[in-house]
Simulated assay, not measured.
Amino acid sequence: MILRIVAVLVALLLVTAVGLFFWIDSRLGGIDNALDDYEGRVADTPGTNWLLVGSDSRKGLSAAQRRKLATGRAAGQRTDSMMLLHISDAGDKPTLVSLPRDSAVTVPGKGRHKLNAAYAIGGPSLLVKTVETVTGVRVDHYMEIGFAGFVDIVDAVGGVEIDVRAAVDDPKAGLKLKKGKQVLTGDQALGYVRTRKGGALPDFERTKRQRQFLSAVVKKAASPGVLINPFTSIPLAMSATEAVLVDEGTGAFDMLSLGLAMGDSPVTTVVPFGGNESVDGGTAVKWDREKALGLFNALAEDKPVPKEIIDAG
């Protein structure tokens, strides 16, 4: 009798899980033309590459929330953070690379700009084209999330534990945190990844916090305590599918692969850089050409990134 009850419960859980999976797939929002082919596009490279973009869209935030989160009232939409995630076919650890938004790059057909200008000028498709052109790595999937979605996802998983390495007091980001491990709410997490306070190179430290946070929130979302509990898994699924935009070819199986990769403690780094360059829009960060080539060539060939390059980031 007990075995029969257990079998029925397991069957119900499986049916519920399958139903939830296809429900999530049906709710994923598509971005048309993000990965369109173009003349001279880099050939397909081994492994799977995701371009993960955090935009500064205020869509979904009330005036009160904008004041509370100190997001300002900027019109339009720009990229606040960009990361390239490489999932190896060879079984190596995934690699997560921050692409500083102020990087000096050539935007196809537009000249030298900061990297985030590609999105402002031509949206996701031009950003993808720019990233592929400057890295030689083919982008297979594109995912984007705005400020409001960011807050909702963190709150849906009950907050995320972060080890804050130094106390932060940044009114511009609506943030005041003590040093040490603590659980951040959605509001606090948004401030944490946006603040430019701390470190000799604020933008460099900012990319570290962004990678630290992304790994932490995905691990929390994929934990049994969240997934098995319908009071957390269903709100998380609703928040994530409302907040996240993906290219039209990305589905729930791809998102599952992304979650597994992020939960696998990926190797994290930032594009090596040194010095500045004047571009259209002001002063931008100049990449260390030799080290950057070493990084992106390794990803394009599905090989581990040399340790000296990882350590540089």
Rank of each mutant, 00 (worst) to 15 (best):
L127C: 09
Y142S: 03
F150S: 04
L127A: 12
L52G: 06
D155N: 13
D56P: 04
R58C: 08
H86T: 07
A90Q: 12
S98D: 10
A75G: 15
D102K: 13
R58T: 03
V151T: 08
M143W: 00
K68M: 07
S81T: 11
G136A: 14
E144T: 12
K59E: 14
P124N: 06
L61C: 14
G109K: 10
A63Q: 14
I87V: 13
K129H: 12
S88L: 07
S125I: 00
L69T: 01
V157P: 01
S88F: 02
V131T: 12
Y142V: 03
V137R: 00
H141I: 01
K129N: 05
L96G: 04
A70M: 08
D102R: 09
R58Y: 11
S98H: 04
G159M: 15
R58E: 08
L96P: 03
R73N: 12
V97A: 11
D92G: 15
L84W: 01
A75N: 13
R101Y: 05
S98T: 11
A70L: 01
T71Y: 02
G123A: 14
V131L: 10
D56N: 11
D152C: 12
G76V: 04
I153S: 08
G109C: 13
P94L: 02
L85Y: 05
I153Q: 02
T133D: 10
V154P: 02
A156Q: 04
T71K: 03
L127G: 10
V128T: 03
V53C: 05
T133Q: 08
V97H: 09
S125K: 11
L85K: 09
D56A: 02
D89V: 04
D56M: 00
G109A: 15
D102V: 07
D56H: 05
A70I: 02
G109S: 12
S57T: 12
V139D: 05
G72L: 08
V105A: 10
V160A: 06
A74V: 06
V128R: 06
P94C: 10
Q77G: 10
G149E: 03
A117K: 08
A70E: 06
A118Y: 00
G54P: 04
A63S: 15
S98L: 10
G111M: 15
L127H: 11
G123Y: 14
V157M: 00
E144G: 12
G76P: 00
G60Y: 05
G109I: 00
G158E: 10
H141M: 07
P94Q: 03
L126M: 06
